[in-house]
């Protein structure tokens, strides 16, 4: 692969053409928060946490879906970006109902970690207090829409890695919801294979195992990344 030069946060780097800004940063110990991104899944740029500033462009660009171009000068840690990251995090919390103290994912949650990371001490936006459903119709898993942040990792892992296409998306705006099949209770889905990959990749307490309890619910998003990598190596 041909190489190009870019400058990220004052570091001069030689990188392969076609690499995303995020991958370059991760490879060079530049820390950018992400939520919808998961190695092994197709990036969709849904959460906007990974935004970066590129000199010469007035728009902020999501690093997970933006490929590096020759001689770009990129900033990843400006005050403006930090402000937006914190704001986005607060909006996640304000949109649905996150009560960490009683949540199954408490202590094992990427969203909670993000809150600490961006220094969220309080939420400055009014909570929507949406009346979201808890779907416990599946014999093995629970889907709690109260804690879903619409990262769509579950949708992508189900269609692209498992090939089952159980999960989909319905509605728009704050009424957007993850649905099973054509909006049936998960337990009635005819496509779900009970593989549990969606539970493993879900960054929050939205998807969980029925026999888990607070403290014992561990997610393994890395398992999916590893699986995809091994499959790619084989082919």
């Amino acid at each position: 692969m041909p190489k190009i030069s870019v400058k990220i946060d004052d570091k001069d780097l030689e990188v392969e053409v076609g690499t995303t800004v995020l991958d370059v940063c991760r490879a060079n110990d530049i820390d950018i928060p992400t939520m919808c991104h998961l190695k092994g899944l197709v990036d969709v740029g849904a959460c906007r946490l990974c935004l970066v500033e590129v000199e010469g462009t007035s728009k902020l660009l999501p690093s997970c879906t933006t490929k590096v171009q020759a001689n770009q000068v990129i900033h990843t840690q400006t005050d403006k970006l930090k402000k937006y990251r914190r704001m986005i995090t607060e909006l996640f919390f304000a949109e649905r109902n996150h009560v960490c103290s009683v949540c199954i994912a408490n202590g094992n949650c990427e969203l909670q970690d993000l809150g600490y990371k961006v220094g969220m001490e309080n939420v400055r936006f009014p909570y929507l207090f949406q009346n979201c459903e808890v779907d416990s119709s599946h014999s093995k898993f629970v889907m709690d829409h109260n804690r879903c942040i619409m990262c769509t990792r579950c949708v992508r892992v189900c269609s692209d890695v498992e090939g089952a296409h159980n999960w989909g998306i319905m509605n728009r705006g704050y009424q957007v919801r993850i649905i099973a099949d054509f909006n049936v209770p998960w337990g009635d889905s005819t496509t779900c294979t009970y593989c549990g990959k969606c539970v493993d990749v879900c960054p929050t307490g939205a998807l969980w195992n029925k026999d888990a309890t607070q403290g014992s619910m561990q997610k393994y998003p890395q398992a999916v990344s590893d699986l995809v990598e091994k499959r790619e190596m084989k082919s």
């Binding site: 103290s101 009683v102 808890v134 709690d144």
Partner: peptide, 14 residues
């Protein structure tokens, strides 16, 4: 109401 029953031992201590 509406929570899955096994969550209660973690909720009610609060």
């Amino acid at each position: 109401e509406g929570r899955y029953f096994t969550e209660m031992p973690a909720i009610t201590p609060r």
